[in-house]
Each structure stands twice: as C-alpha cells, then as structure tokens.
Design a protein around this nucleic acid. Sequence first.
RNA 1: GCCCCGAUAGCUCAGUAGGAUAGAGCACAGGAUUCCUAAUCCUGGUGCCGCAGGUUCGAAUCCUGCUCGGGGCACCA
Length: 541
Amino acid sequence: MREKIKSIIDKYLKEKGYSLDYVIEYPKNETFGDYSTNFAMILASKLKRNPKNVANEFIESLYSNIFDKVEIAGSGFINFYIKKEAFIEELMEVYNKKENYFKPKIHKNKFIQVEFVSANPTGPLHVGHGRGAAIGDSIARILKFFGHKVEKEYYINDAGLQMELLGQSLYVRYKQLLGMDDALPEDGYKGEYLIDLARKLIMEYGENLLKMEESEAIEFCKSRAADNILKYIMETLEKFRVSFDKIFNERRLYQSNEVEESLKLLEDKGVIYEKEGALWFRSTDFGDDKDRVLRRKNGVFTYFASDIAYHRNKFLKRGFDEVIDIWGSDHHGYVKRVKSAIEAMGIDSEKLKVILVQIVNLLRSGEKVSMSTRKGEFVELENVINEVGVDAARFMFVSRSTDSHLDFDLELAKKQSNDNPVYYVQYAYARINSIFNQLGNKTDLDLENAWNLKEKEEIDLIKSLIQFKELLEKSYKKRDPYFITKGLLGIAEKFHRFYNKHRVIVSEETIRKARLLLIETVAISLKLGFDLIGIEAKKRM
RNA sequence: GCCCCGAUAGCUCAGUAGGAUAGAGCACAGGAUUCCUAAUCCUGGUGCCGCAGGUUCGAAUCCUGCUCGGGGCACCA
C-alpha cells in the first residue's frame, strides 16, 4: 500500500524533474487519514515556495482510484484516505499468496552464517545465553524465510585456560567427595553442577582416578566435564527449540594450522610486529585504540589469534557472504579489533555484522539476581524454561530491541494473565481456530465474498496485516526479531477488538464467508510470526 | 581517563532514518458475557521526553558540552 502511494508520488516528481528524500508514514492521529507524506514541504523548501501550493498542484494532478480523499493539512502535510476497496484488495492478495505475501519481491540470495550462544561448556546456560539463543535462532529463521541460505553455528573455545580450570575444579570436587582435603583454584568453577558431576564420576570409577598421574586425571576430568556439560547445554537448547547446523571447536583451528596460516597472512600484509617478546597486530592502522597481542611472551596464542583464524575460516574457507556474530554486550570492545583483523586480511569488514545483545536483568519478586557463571550464582536457562515455558521465555527475550536492556521478571512471566503478552497473541490464534472448529469442514472460502467487509474493525484488522508486512521487512533489514513481536501484538489487538464487536458465525452467508476469509488470513499471518520467533501456534489454550 | 549502551507517564518500554495535540502495555478505578474461549473488550489521566546551548519553517529525534545509571577498556576468558 505504501509502495503504491510512493510510486504515485515518485512518478509525479519524476515528471516534474525532481528527486528528493521524503517519507510516507502513518499519521499519529487516525483523523489524519491512513498515510501521510511530507514531500510537499521538502520540495517547497527546496523551491522556496509555499508548501500548500506545492501540495495543491500535486493533488490536482491525481487521478488514482485508491483514495477516498487526499487532503492538505497542517503546514503542508498531504494526508491520504484510502478506499476500503483498496484494503480489501490487499487482503485478497494476502489470502492468495499466503506467507509469500510477506516476502519482498527482490533480493539476492546470500549464504549467511549466524553464530550464537557459543558459551564454553564450563557450566549450564544462564538467562543471558537464553536471550542470545532466542535472538540468534529467530534471526536465522527470518533470514531463511526471506530466501537466504543460512547456517547456524556454535563455537567452542576449547583450547584455553578456561577448560583447564574446569578440569581442575572437577578434580577437586571429586577429591573432596572422597573425603580429601583440597580447595578449588582461585578462579575455579564453584557451581553445584560440578559436584553432581563428581558424584557421577565416583559412581562410575570409584577411586580409580586417584591412581592416575594428577595431570592425567585432570585431563580426564576436563574432557568428561566438557562432554557432559555440552550435552546438557544442547539438551537445554533443544528444549528451547534452538538447534545448530554445526559445532565448531577452537582446537581445530590449531590442529589444521589455520592459526599459523592466518598470522602468516597478516605478516605478509605487514601488520604484525614483535615487541617485548610478544607478537602484535597493528590494529591501530584500522582505527583501533591500541595494538593487540596475538602471541604472548610465553609463546601461547591469545584468543584473539584464534578468533582471527576463525573468521578467516568463515569467510575465506567457507565462503559466507555475510556472517552474523551474536555476542554479549560485554564483548563490545572486541568488535573493533576483530573487524580490523578481517579488514587486514583483505575481507570487507562490512560482511561481518556483530550484534551485541544487551544485558538481561533477571528479577525475582523485584529482587535482582546476579548471574556470574564463575561464582556459580546464576539462574539457569533450564530453570527459567521450566518455570515460565518456552513460549513465554522466547517471546520475552525478543520483545525488546537487542540493544536495550531487558528486565525479565520471573514472577511476571510465570503469570498466565494478560500482563503476559505472549498469551494475548496466542489467544488470538486459538480463538480463530475455535471458530473454524465450530464450523467443522463446511468452510469453503471464496474470494469474492471479501467485498462484503465494511466494518471499521474489519478494515483495521486488514491494516494491521499490512503493517505486519512492513514490520517483518524491518525485522529483516535490521536483523532484529523485536519488530515481529510488535507486529504480532498489533494484529492480536485488532483481532480481539473485532472479535468482541462482531460475530463471525452469523446466519447471513455472505458476511459469514467474508469474515471467515478475513480471520483465515489473520491466522496465516499470526502463524508466520509465531514460526519466525519460534513460539507455538496453539490451537487451543 | 577513554569507549559503548541507556535516560520518555507510578513501573516496563515504543516513538518507524527531523514533522501535526509525544504513544502502548502494566498498575489503579468503573463497566461489558442468553450467543464463535472473559487468557477478551470498552471508558477514564498522567509527562520540564536527564540538564544546558546550537542547527531550522519545525527537535524526544541531528550537533556540542554536562549530569546520572549499566557495561567495557589485560600478554583474562
């Protein structure tokens, strides 16, 4: 609809020989029509003319039949009042094309990777990971829907100190359970889950680990812990309806020599130097605050080094056209240097999009819950899912734009009441379904009936579908699923309003069929939105 | 000290790439169900848009400075 208006204006401007940036928007107030544009004001200021005259000339030249009326308002806005027939035509289009209506016509297919969660298997996932998971998975779904080839990946830093500490921590717990006196290392993992794991170890191996060399025992504990925890993480994610196409291990980058190769590549580009025994990347050449260490004095590579290799692998080995990394906001300082390195390797750093997910404040009865993995005082995603359900959790996580903080109140999300927007939206779908159930299968819909729609609530509902299309597109362009929740709420609101005021199952066949067509189309749209953010389209509630 | 994100109604947040009287949900009060699910709907009112300047026909939105909150600034991960 917006495009139709835009093409009319563009055509007019083109005939006049102008081109300018203007907007077509929804007026704040319904009495100002369905759409509104400021182009006359912009053109007028360019020509130093009176905006109202400019607007008037445009209106007089109009001959389109989709408008009831077109008015000048305020200091030169042009307000468009759309004929209801035009909206009904739009509805028919949705009905005909189904989900495809919501896909834009043109775009080139890309091969896109979405890398997310990527938590090290050193402990269970917490709510922060949950938000990343919900966002990443939804983005992948959206990109797929819009026709791209998408690969979802989980990256594990399994080559560094963290995993070492994990092994040590488990070993200590194991010894402690056997009555030995030992303390966790300073930065060790203090969570309960390691005690559980230690208990399992004792059940399976008794005291046998004590007979090993300590380093061997720790190595054993490390891989046991990692395997177990990763398995647990994946189970949680699966429950959360999040799956991955690939798990990528950091260790692999060393085994295949890709870390060395990447550094060689950078060296050839002349952006590497040695200082004080360490190897540095001159990221300041690319706008970073300071240069970064790649290999420490002690000969050990930094994570940055393997991350460079990892991104080289993504772009040069696997050939992704676009890579989306979803990180916690606490990694924001890292973005610049990774992009610098990519640029240095001759890759367009625009192809890497880093989405920083802001913090989740978990509240329980108003009390803020702290979430540090190492201290072991975090709330597990698993618990949250069990408490509030997958649908509510996923919806909550994506219901704010990614760059704003999210307050997640467990008590609130648990409530099955209308504080909880996910139920509001799902309920709309269930109601539609219930109407169709009522009718059994005698619901032959045919398009022509749609012309009988005339009530304000009916037309408003159609408008909400058109807006949903726009929001979907925005969600896609901005790579943020948040806009989908907004669209869903918009449709649900209009639907509930319609439902309350008008009955679908009425004796008059023409009206009944028209409304059935309408709600069928609404159901299609809702279902699509649900699928894209990974929540269930419940037929009953 | 430097960098990032934020500051809008009692609370949680929108505000669509400068536009009309700044919106929604929650909370609060009242009302609606012989009939497709009351997990719904309807009616009520709140704002120095953090502060101070600037840019222009016009600023919550852009620029500059400042204040406050959160996070980040390692040869840690």
